[in-house]
Amino acid sequence: MNANLARELVIAAAVLVFALVVQFILIPTQIEQSVEYDLASLSPAFFPELAILIIGGLSILLILSNIRHLVKGIPPEQTDEVSLTLSEELRIGGAMAVSIVYYLVVDYLGFWITNTVGVTILLIIQDRRQIWRQILIAAATTLGIYLFFFFVMKVHFPIGKIFK
């Protein structure tokens, strides 16, 4: 069993677990029951459960199809995915971390700080030289976007709770 096949099996199993979790934990707790409803119109839980049924069923099929590949010795279908080196993955992870932190702090620190710092970090992730220029570019971009959106689009960015 080669690495590809093992990975495919794990993925399919993970999807199945996800389906089970939603079906047995999330649906009962998160779908409000209304006081009284017309049975004719199907319950609010119908379509979510239908979706889960499909997901669960298909994940089982995936597992079976992978097992079939295993038994017959045929390599699984090539997936569309791109292979990445470890340093690339780390960089991507860094970018993701930046975006998560951005979301969490923008309400508190305000658009100016968050955006300038965020863009700077993203630039640094790609190329560690010339940090000065990067900060300047980040600030200039932030300013430009702020002006365009504020005056042309009339969009008000978060000021930042610490400034209130």
């Binding site: 979510p48 239908l50 298909l58 994940s59 995936l62 997936t79």
Partner: peptide
């Protein structure tokens, strides 16, 4: 490439679309 995975993706879209208020009963989902 993988139609099974594509269908799972679609079903996931269906599930995510139910987040919010139920269109008929206006009860909350997820």
């Amino acid at each position: 490439k993988s139609i099974l995975k594509g269908l799972i993706s679609g079903a996931l879209g269906l599930l995510l679309a139910t987040v919010g208020l139920d269109p008929i009963m206006t009860t909350r989902r997820f």
